[in-house]
């Protein structure tokens, strides 16, 4: 883990905090963009068919690794675990909680003498959240996944391409109208590109930073 005082978001240079304050009054915008910086991301690999592995993960983070492809377990307000592959998951926790989760996972997987890997990849990615009544339309401009509520909803995820850029896409909420809330976990070297692409694609609907 990087010391907290050394953490720098890849979007720091865009001055998003100041923009969020300045744009808080904007009304009638179709899209709201924000960055969720410094989330703890822990990559886990192991054998999903081994009950001892599943139990060790459950004991460590109080979440069951989902075996259904493209799903996320847990509540967005707390820790979550995302399916990445038949033997691979990503734990997403709040800033500052990663160290403890890492230690617990290490200990329980090691105690069980399990063939598994735990890797902290927090600094590899940042999270861009896109919400608002037109968010889905903006994503549809650059993402081949069918995001219609009948095909994609809260708790579902996809590792896919948005504007030629590889992302982990998660839907966290779906309002009764067309509004959905999505999170895009993007590699930090692509973050500025993806943010500016999203902002540009949102212009026609009205956009503000939160």
């Amino acid at each position: 883990m990087v010391d907290a005082y050394r953490l720098r978001s890849p979007l720091d240079h865009l001055g998003l905090t100041a923009r969020a304050q300045a744009e808080a009054e904007y009304s009638g915008t179709g899209v709201v963009l924000s960055e969720i910086a410094h989330l703890c991301l822990i990559n886990i690999r192991g054998d999903a068919s081994d009950p001892a592995f599943i139990a060790a993960v459950e004991k460590s983070i109080k979440l069951t690794p989902p075996t259904a492809p493209n799903t996320v377990a847990g509540k967005p307000s707390q820790s979550r675990i995302m399916w990445l592959g038949p033997d691979e998951w990503l734990v997403i926790t709040k800033p500052g909680r990663g160290e403890r989760a890492m230690a617990e996972l290490w200990k329980n997987l090691k105690d069980g003498k399990l063939h598994a890997a735990v890797t902290d990849s927090s600094e590899a990615r940042t999270c861009i959240r896109i919400e608002g009544p037109r968010a889905r339309e903006v994503l549809a401009k650059g993402c081949p996944i069918d995001l219609h509520p009948s095909a994609f909803g809260p708790g579902q995820s996809a590792q896919c391409i948005v504007a030629k850029c590889g992302v982990m896409l998660v839907q966290t909420a779906q309002a009764k109208d067309t509004a959905g809330t999505y999170e895009l976990y993007v590699l930090r070297s692509f973050a500025t590109y993806l943010w500016t692409w999203l902002e540009d694609a949102s212009q026609e609907f009205g956009v503000r930073v939160a």
Binding site: P69, N70, G85, P144, A158, C160
Partner: peptide, 10 residues
């Protein structure tokens, strides 16, 4: 076989 139907570009 895991993720379902996706575009060739992936």
């Amino acid at each position: 076989p895991w993720c379902g139907e996706r575009e060739e570009s992936e």
